[in-house]
Design a binder for these strands. Structure first.
Lengths: 301, 301
DNA sequence: GTTTACCATGCATAAAATTCATGGAGCAAT
DNA sequence: ATTGCTCCATGAATTTTATGCATGGTAAAC
């Protein structure tokens, strides 16, 4: 395979389009002389002239005419493929459940955007989880899970730990309740299925009796929001309430933490592992969200 | 249009085919380091890795996989077009009538071949003449003609001049005949249509009487061949008998030359005028065959 | 005849490609 | 583990190539 000089070919293309070396030079940000030399190189390669130089305007020889569409098509093919793969590297769609999105990701998202201003990051907030990323609706996902699918890379962020919290307004002038006094307040359930309160009380060595289900919420986030509005005491995942505890919207009522069997993971398909945008987000997320020191780059936990 | 570095793309293609920078280097006659740098250039351009470097073998990233076929197709397109136009410049098909072919062109053809050993010159010997080169069976033609078609370039080689010749064997020990004695021998006619002998006798101020048509031949060449075998006296075009006169196969019987109204031309389509092979052949033919000093290159007569 | 609009080209310089030599990482076999 | 092997990466020097600049030449238009 003996290809012609490719850069000269590029110049040829532009010169043929403009019917002028001078204008081609302007388009390519080159001098007219440089264009002339490129064409000479190409003509020397083929051993035949590609242009007919006339005082009034430049014409292609029949050979130049034959070459032109091939070069144009070839380059536009390359251009299209390049555009396709470049776009993929500039975009990143992050998926998170509503709770994680609003309580973990969003508060820190601008920090990431600022660090990678050229990256178009979007947050996809859906409740369901497509375990094989088949839908291609997102590139990387925050996900609480227990099992691992092949073909995906999992980075453990942190275990889920639930502690009881409530708005300080709930107690007005009264002292904060002890565990035994929790039943005097509405207990907010962050899930319809899991029996977090039962488990937590069992952990604390108590029997909560019948008052356990006051309000049940669809998401962890909603339960926390309800609690912060003074509706009652909820079990909140520790990592989601850092801000609320810091600014006093919520107070933690016990150090007893319910540690569930599952953990939060950052997950993405193996074939995206080489994308710089994925790598950048992964490294940032691990440093920001993990409860363990960041793992060496590239290693899955 | 912002194309990636094209030479790096070429290296990428070979490296992707070999799954090895080292082997790609060998193929391209480059060192492994040079290949590595080209790939780096390309990866920097796209801002993403194209290869996964593993200790055991090299793999393409998904982006590399996406890029590969586009680059391969693009380059093979260029290659095909290049091959097509290069071949045209390396081949030349010369057309001549049988007479001109055997008496003018063939004796000098090896000289031309030797001067341009890379050129694949072929001689097409056909009697008819496709005046517009529409059949594309030949690129350049030796042709006797009077009118000129548009779109063709004509180079006048020489006028046609007919002189009487015969084999010396025809006369044995007898002296060579004077014009008046020509009628005592068979007169060979080089054409079925033109009345060359009548015209020639008229030019000589003689009346040939009735003996004028002894043998008529299809071509000038055949009449000359017949004469050289002692069959009689023929009128031969001067330029076709130089060799025969030189080696004694034929003797010229008179200086009276019949100059016809037409001349021999070298003809080719205008669109082939830029082909180096056509130019080379034209210049050589003009210098070899013309009865006038060669015209400045590029000018049609 | 003069102007104008192009392309060609010699020479100097800037930029890029390439080599060479070395380093380092992963895998396999001892 | 240790050794050896095979690749790829990389710093520095060098060669090659591309480019700019200024100038020259040519054919058409005014």
């Amino acid at each position: 395979m003996k290809l012609p000089p490719l850069n000269a070919l590029r110049v040829f293309l532009v010169a043929a389009e403009h019917h002028s070396f001078t204008k081609a030079g302007e388009t390519l940000h080159l001098t007219q002389g440089a264009v002339s030399r490129h064409i000479q190189t190409l003509e020397a390669h083929y051993g035949l002239p590609l242009f007919v130089r006339q005082a009034r305007g430049l014409t292609l020889t029949p050979e130049g005419v034959a070459l032109f569409p091939a070069v144009r098509d070839a380059f536009s093919r390359i251009e299209a493929a390049s555009e396709a793969i470049s776009r993929r590297s500039r975009e990143l769609r992050v998926k998170a459940s509503p709770s994680i999105a609003s309580r973990w990701v969003l508060p820190r998202f601008t920090q990431f955007r600022n660090r990678y201003p050229d990256l178009m990051v979007s947050l996809v907030t859906v409740t369901g989880f497509d375990p094989n990323f088949k839908s291609r609706e997102y590139d990387i996902s925050f996900q609480a899970c227990e099992t691992q699918e092949p073909g995906l890379i999992y980075h453990r962020l942190r275990g889920a730990r639930f502690v009881p919290v409530a708005s300080p307004d709930l107690f007005k002038d009264k002292p904060r309740p002890t565990m035994a006094q929790f039943m005097e307040y509405p207990l907010l359930h962050p899930s319809h299925e899991d029996q977090f309160w039962s488990q937590w009380f069992a952990l604390s060595g108590m029997n909560p009796g019948n008052s356990i289900e006051a309000y049940a919420f669809d998401t962890l986030d909603l339960a926390i929001t309800a609690a912060s509005r003074g509706m009652g005491i909820t079990l909140a995942e520790e990592s989601m309430i850092a801000d609320d505890l810091a600014n006093g919207t919520l107070v933690q009522l016990s150090d007893v933490a319910l540690v569930t069997s599952w953990a939060y993971y950052l997950i993405y398909p193996q074939e995206l592992a080489t994308l710089p945008s994925v790598i950048a987000f992964r490294d940032w997320a691990l440093a920001e969200f993990s409860d363990t020191p960041p793992a060496p780059a590239g290693s899955a936990q």
